[in-house]
Structures are given as structure tokens and as C-alpha cells.
């Protein structure tokens, strides 16, 4: 384990700040989906790069925790590596890429394919916590709309999608209603992941650093994606299984192989994909894919 940064508290933040954040988290858990303002601190990474998630993780992390950090579903994207290293350095906790082993998972843009369990906490990095923001730019007005549960405007947006495109054209950050009360932005995860939030046994925490908001979905809470009765919510389906591990019903990344239109689809959740390959599952392009995709050691 790397030596801890001298001069900094465990997990970077001072204990007073952590207590403040934990109070906000408790309030958020008590009112599922409600955005709790908190005195977000400057962090040593830029706003918009996960400062909200990092503060939430820092506030809940204990010495015995096992941390997994993903970005776009992958453990080794640059920002995930950077945040994981940050906690290795400042908290010295054990880290893992294995979803099932992690007690705390910080994520940007995905929910792991492996179903989360009781006792696990997933921390989402949130850029814009307000689902109504792009329909109504004023905080004072959106606050009133939440207070009075006036969410008609959100359906106006969905109506427009259907009128224009024949479908609801929102593909990520797809709005959900939590516990039958608060409209919530699930962070820019693809809507593919929305059903995983519903009745999840894990605690789901959301941190928005720049916008200074924390919200939460306690375990086993109803999370419903907005839709119309005659245009029900649907998740995107992929035509083919993962080209490397043959997994179906998972979210796939499109990888362009050459400039002649060659492309393949592979699991966005790299840990899931690698685990399956280790178990002997073989996709149709396994072995042919370039090393940067399969992440098998290049010779």
C-alpha cells in the first residue's frame, strides 16, 4: 500500500467536514430523491470531475472498506484511475475492480452489471442534480416545483419527444420518480441502467460538488422511470452479444476498429467482461480484437 499523504486527514477531508456531509446524507436518505444542499468543499480535482462523489465517498469511507471506482463502466478509464489513486493515497483503503467484493463503489455514468447486494453502497458522481434544470433554469422556481410536486413540465418534454421522434428521445439522465414523490436525475447513466435502481438492495448516494447537492435512494426503494401509459419506458437493446465475452442483456460500447467501418460491440463493464472471459465465455471476436480493446497483454 502506498504511504499516506502526510498532513492530510484520513480520506482527505477533515472530520468536521465529514460530519457535515454525513448529516446531509442522513437527511437525503430520510427523504428519498430530495436534493439536500450541502457546503461542498473545494477538492483537489476540478469541479465536474467527480468532486461531489469524492466528498460523499470520503465522508462514508472507513478503514475496513473496499473501494471500487468506475467511469463509463470501466475501472481503468483515466478519471477512475485518478480517483482510485486519490483514495489509495489519502485513505489507504483496499481497492478492487471486483464489483461483488467492493463495499463502496464510486461511479460515473454506469451501474455495474453484477447486481448490487445488501450492505454495498454505490456513490454516483452528478454534474447537474436538478432534473428540471433544462426546462426551468431558475433554482427558486424548480425548488417550488419540487415542493409542490408540480412535475407536469417534465412530461411536456417527453410529450415533445414522442411528437417529434415517435419515441421518448431521452437516452441518459432519464428522469425517475423516487418513492412516489420526488422527481430525480439519476446522473448521466444510460437509461439502460434505470431499472437497476429500482428496489436495489444497495444504498445509492448521489453527490454533486459544483452544484452543492446530495441526494439518496435508500435500499429497497421504488424508482420509476417516467413515461406515458401508451409509450412505456423501454431500455435500449443491443442486436448482438458482447464480442469478447458473449454476454447478453448488458450495456455495450461501440469500438471502431479501422477507418473502413469496422466496429465491434463490447461490454462497457470491463470487470464483468473479464470475469466472464476468465470463466470461459467466448465472444465471436475474442482473440482477434486489438489489445487495447481486449486488454490482454500485448506481445
Amino acid at each position: 500500500m502506498t504511504t499516506l499523504h502526510p498532513g492530510y486527514n484520513f480520506a482527505y477531508l477533515d472530520e468536521q467536514t465529514k460530519r457535515m456531509i454525513r448529516r446531509a446524507i442522513l437527511k437525503a436518505v430520510a427523504i428519498p430523491g430530495y436534493q439536500v444542499p450541502f457546503a461542498s468543499r473545494e477538492m483537489p480535482m476540478p469541479y465536474g470531475w467527480g468532486t461531489g462523489g469524492v466528498q460523499v465517498t470520503a465522508a462514508i469511507l472507513g478503514e475496513g472498506d473496499v473501494l471500487k471506482v468506475i467511469d463509463q463502466g470501466s475501472d481503468d478509464t483515466t478519471n477512475a484511475v485518478s480517483i482510485r489513486k486519490f483514495f489509495e493515497k489519502t485513505a489507504g483503503v483496499e481497492t478492487t475492480t471486483e464489483t461483488a467484493r467492493a463495499t463502496v463503489i464510486q461511479t460515473r455514468h454506469r451501474i455495474p452489471e453484477t447486481a448490487l447486494q445488501e450492505g454495498q453502497t454505490i456513490v454516483y458522481q452528478v454534474p447537474i442534480p436538478e432534473p428540471l434544470r433544462f426546462l426551468e433554469p431558475r433554482e427558486t422556481e424548480t425548488r417550488t416545483m419540487h415542493g409542490l410536486e408540480e412535475y407536469g413540465l417534465m412530461h411536456v418534454k417527453l410529450y415533445e419527444d414522442i411528437a417529434t421522434h415517435g419515441h421518448i428521445a431521452t437516452t441518459y439522465a432519464y428522469p425517475v420518480k423516487v418513492n412516489g414523490r420526488y422527481l430525480m436525475d439519476p446522473s448521466p447513466t444510460p437509461k439502460f441502467d434505470n431499472p437497476k435502481m429500482d428496489m436495489s438492495p444497495a444504498l445509492q448516494l448521489f453527490g454533486a460538488g459544483r452544484e452543492k447537492r446530495i441526494y439518496a435512494i435508500p435500499p429497497y426503494t421504488k424508482v420509476v422511470s417516467l413515461d406515458f401509459e401508451d409509450h412505456p419506458f423501454e431500455v435500449n437493446k443491443f442486436d448482438k452479444p458482447c464480442a469478447l465475452c458473449a454476454a447478453e442483456g448488458v450495456y455495450l460500447d461501440e469500438v471502431i476498429l479501422d477507418d473502413a467501418g469496422g466496429r465491434m460491440f463490447v461490454c462497457s463493464d470491463t470487470d464483468y467482461c473479464e470475469t466472464r472471459r476468465a470463466e470461459g465465455h467466448r465472444g465471436e471476436m475474442l482473440g482477434e480484437a486489438p489489445a487495447f480493446v481486449s486488454r490482454e497483454p500485448a506481445e
Binding site: W49, Q72, Y172, P190, S268
Partner: peptide
Amino acid sequence: TGFVEHLKLPHYVDFQSEL
């Protein structure tokens, strides 16, 4: 600057949905 520059971070999961 943080939020403007965060557009540099990968967004390919969301982009895939849009695609």
C-alpha cells in the same frame, strides 16, 4: 473551468445511447 473542461472526460456510454 472544472465543468467546461470536464467535457474532456469520456462520455462514450451516453454517446452510445444517443448513437
